[in-house]
Amino acid sequence: MPHDHDHDHNHDVPHSHEGMSSSGHPYRADQDQPLTYWQNMEIAMRELLIEKGVTTELEVMHTIDQMDSRSPADGAKVVARAWCDPDFRARLMADASEASREMGFDIGALKLIAVENTADIHNVIVCTLCSCYPRNLLGFPPDWYKQRAYRARVVKTPRAVLREFGLELPDDVTVRVHDSTADMRYIVIPARPQGTENLDETALAALVSRDSMIGVARAASPE
């Protein structure tokens, strides 16, 4: 099978680091490029849905605002709470959807499962069939999560894949790879770093990256 073209060839798109998006990424140039067939289809579909009364311009904007407001900072708050509050941690491990709702996050009908990293076990998540991801707590998935290389390889050679992310695991640590579905998704609760006994929840949350909640990194150590 050929490799994924997206993967290897879209890094030469020039971008300035001025004008980052709300999520801290550079914007893709789109509005000023010639209209593509698929962009045309989006416009047509949206206008037809509005004309037919299925949705409104406002509802589309509101939905995008909601998507943009979700970021890994949400998941990081859940992780930091679990590190600080043993009762919350127990509820999170029993039912991550319900525990996240308790903190005010909209999880929808999704069954969310928290998997916890320890000294002996390292968890990593994937969706081998498509791109299922705990969006409600982490926002949009990174591109590599949706592409062939990660999906194909992480279930077979996870240690090699993790090494590519700069994460070298000792041989005596068991690696568990969790394959998501549309209705059942995972979030990794990274191990609490050493030397953080005196940090409060806010300071702890700042150590929890997106990648650490996917399982391709550890939580950061304090400065």
Partner: peptide, 27 residues
């Protein structure tokens, strides 16, 4: 159904989505 098949190296990408892409998702 790609799990366990061959794949190239992981290349981290770091782009936000374009407005038209977010609209597709929203719709």
């Amino acid at each position: 159904d790609m799990g366990g098949l061959e794949g190239g190296p992981i290349v981290a990408d770091d782009h936000d989505f374009a407005l038209w892409e977010k609209r597709v998702d929203a719709l």
